[in-house]
């Protein structure tokens, strides 16, 4: 009898963990599977004896350190996905690195509030006196990549930007 109760309790625990795992960011079901990766550049010596850089998982970062964020979108359905746009906030405690956002076949826009998006030169912010000026790169809070073409079944698109730990 005692044994039966403890196995029920154990079963409940497993269930709870599964739910937490889902809430913590397992991709939800859909035709596009989106994956985010954080990496840092690491210098290394090639077989030819030259110094090069490669991306390795961001195990640790320190203030002033740069993180390369890469988002991949995979179309896992058999229908093309249209009007694909990836939104990524510049993470808290980080500052966007100017001109670092890239994505093949995309138009890239930025925002300082997560609502109004515009290309770099066209994004403005209000001064204290009510006048407007062009937003600076370090003020960007969100990045949006809009894909010009549909994402075909089985294909993968990617977007990338760099940010520095404040």
């Amino acid at each position: 009898m005692k044994k039966g109760i403890s196995s029920i309790v154990a079963g409940t625990l497993v269930l709870v963990f599964a739910v937490v795992g889902q809430a913590a960011g397992q991709p939800a079901a859909g035709c596009i599977v989106l994956k985010t990766v954080a990496e840092v550049e690491q210098p290394y010596t090639t077989d030819d004896g030259e110094t090069a850089k490669r991306l390795v998982p961001a195990a640790k970062v320190v203030p002033g350190g740069e993180v390369v964020w890469t988002v991949t979108a995979s179309n896992v359905c058999d229908k093309p996905a249209e009007k694909v746009a990836i939104d990524n906030p510049v993470p808290d405690h980080m500052r966007y690195v100017p001109d670092s956002a890239m994505g093949p076949g995309t138009d890239i826009a930025f925002s300082v509030d997560g609502r109004k998006f515009a290309p770099p030169g066209a994004l403005t912010v209000s001064n204290a006196d009510g006048s407007e000026r062009t937003a600076r790169a370090e003020e960007y809070s969100h990045i949006r990549w809009t894909f010009k073409n549909a994402l075909q079944p089985g294909s993968v698109a990617f977007a990338r930007f760099r940010a520095v730990v404040k």
């Binding site: 993180v67 964020w69 979108a73 249209e82 694909v84 746009a85 939104d87 994402l151």
Partner: peptide, 11 residues
């Protein structure tokens, strides 16, 4: 430091 991306699309 946490980061989550969102994709919007039309099917």
């Amino acid at each position: 430091i946490q980061n989550t991306a969102v994709v919007n699309y039309s099917l």
